[in-house]
C-alpha cells in the first residue's frame, strides 16, 4: 500500500476537501433559494402575530433585512463561525446544540441498522447466489420483498405490536427483559427501531450482493482458481467475495448516511429522541435555521463519507491509483 502515502494521494484528498466545501456552499445556496420560495415565514402562525409584535420579532431575528443580506449573514455565520443559528420553534436551542444532543440517538439506530442490514444482507446475498434458484434463494427473495414492499412506517407499527405489545399484554413476558414499545436509554431500545430501519438495507444488500456474486462466479479468474484446484471455500472467500464486494462498497456510503439521518416515522413511533422529527418540522414550520443547519450537516457528512468510500475503494481495488 505504498501509494497511500504518495504525493498523489495527498493532492487527491486535498483537492477533494476543497471541492467538498464548494459543494456544501452550492448545496446551502440552493437550499436557501428554495426555502425562501415557500409561502409564509417562520413567524406565520395559526393566530396571526399582531403587526407591532411581529415587527419586534423580525428585528430580533434579522428577518427585516434585505434577503441578500440575510443570505450573506447566514453563510458567513455557518461557514466561517461554524454556527448554524437558533431554531425558531424550540426557541432557546441553537441548531448546534440540537445536533449535539439528538444526533447520537439517530446515529445509534442508524449504525445498528447498518450493521444488521449489511451482515444479514451480505450473508443472504452470498447464500442466495451460491445456491441459486434453490429454496434458500427464494426465501431470501421473499424476505427482501417484505422488507421493501411495505413502507417502513407500516412495518414499524407491525413490529411494535407483534414484538413489543402482544407479548406483554397477551403472553405476559417479563417487561424488564423484553422490548419496550416506547423508550430510550437502554440497549434493548435500539433493537426494534434499528431492526425496522435495517429491513430496507437488508433488501438492497441482498439483491446487489447476489447479483454481483453471480456475475463474478463466471469470471475467468474464478474459473482459473477452480481449475488450479482451489477449494470452493477458498474460491468464494478469496476471489469471488473480494471482487463482488467492490460495487457494494460504493453503496455503503449513501446507505450509511441514509440510515443515520433519522427517520421521522420510525423515531416517532418508538420514541427515539433523534433528529428525524426536527428535520420534518423544520420544513413544515419554515424553520430556516434548522432546515439549513441539518441540510448542511448531513450534506457534509455525506460528502466526507463519500470521500472515505472512494479512498477505501482504492484500497480494495488495486487497479485504482490516486493521482
Amino acid at each position: 500500500m505504498q501509494h497511500l502515502l504518495s504525493w498523489g494521494f495527498f493532492r487527491y484528498v486535498g483537492q477533494r476537501l476543497i471541492m467538498a466545501v464548494l459543494t456544501l456552499w452550492a448545496l446551502a445556496t440552493l437550499t436557501f433559494v428554495f426555502m425562501r420560495a415557500v409561502p409564509g415565514d417562520p413567524l406565520t402562525r395559526t393566530k396571526e402575530i399582531p403587526a407591532t409584535v411581529r415587527a419586534n420579532l423580525e428585528e430580533k431575528y434579522g428577518l427585516n433585512k434585505p434577503i441578500f443580506d440575510q443570505y450573506l449573514i447566514q453563510m458567513q455565520r455557518m461557514f466561517i463561525q461554524g454556527d448554524f443559528g437558533e431554531s425558531f420553534r424550540t426557541v432557546d436551542r441553537s441548531v448546534n446544540r440540537m445536533i449535539a444532543e439528538n444526533f447520537p440517538a439517530s446515529a445509534a439506530i442508524g449504525i445498528f441498522a447498518l450493521i444488521v442490514g449489511t451482515t444479514v444482507g451480505l450473508g443472504l446475498g452470498i447464500v442466495a447466489a451460491l445456491y441459486r434458484n434453490s429454496l434458500i434463494d427464494r426465501i431470501a427473495m421473499l424476505l427482501c420483498v417484505i422488507g421493501i414492499a411495505i413502507p417502513s412506517a407500516l412495518i414499524a407499527y407491525v413490529v411494535q405490536y407483534f414484538l413489543a405489545v402482544f407479548p406483554l399484554t397477551h403472553l405476559h413476558v417479563n417487561p424488564h427483559v423484553w422490548f419496550r414499545p416506547v423508550g430510550w436509554g437502554q440497549f434493548r431500545d435500539v433493537i426494534l427501531p434499528g431492526f425496522t430501519l435495517s429491513l430496507g438495507i437488508i433488501t438492497l444488500m441482498t439483491r446487489y450482493m447476489r447479483s454481483q456474486m453471480v456475475d463474478v462466479s463466471f469470471a475467468e479468474f474464478v474459473r482459473t482458481a477452480r481449475a488450479k484446484g482451489a477449494s470452493t471455500a477458498r474460491v468464494v472467500a478469496l476471489h469471488q467475495l473480494r471482487n463482488a464486494m467492490l460495487p457494494v462498497v460504493s453503496l455503503l456510503g449513501p446507505i450509511f448516511v441514509g440510515a443515520i439521518s433519522g427517520s421521522l416515522l420510525i423515531e416517532n413511533i418508538f420514541g427515539v429522541p433523534g433528529l428525524g422529527a426536527a428535520y420534518f418540522n423544520s420544513i413544515s414550520n419554515n424553520d430556516y435555521n434548522v432546515l439549513m443547519g441539518l441540510t448542511v450537516f448531513y450534506g457534509g457528512f455525506f460528502i466526507i463519507i463519500n470521500l472515505i468510500t472512494d479512498v477505501l475503494y482504492g484500497l480494495i481495488d488495486p487497479r485504482i491509483r490516486f493521482g
Binding site: M19, L22, T23, A26, L27, L30, T31, F34, M35, A37, V38, P254, Y279, F280, I283, L291, T295, Y298, G299, F302, I303, N306
Partner: peptide, 18 residues
C-alpha cells in the same frame, strides 16, 4: 460527482412543496 452530491443531499420535501 459533486453535482450528484448536491442533488443527493437536497431536502427533497422542500422540492415537493415548491
Amino acid at each position: 460527482m459533486r453535482l450528484v452530491e448536491v442533488i443527493d443531499n437536497f431536502p427533497d420535501l422542500l422540492v415537493f412543496i415548491i
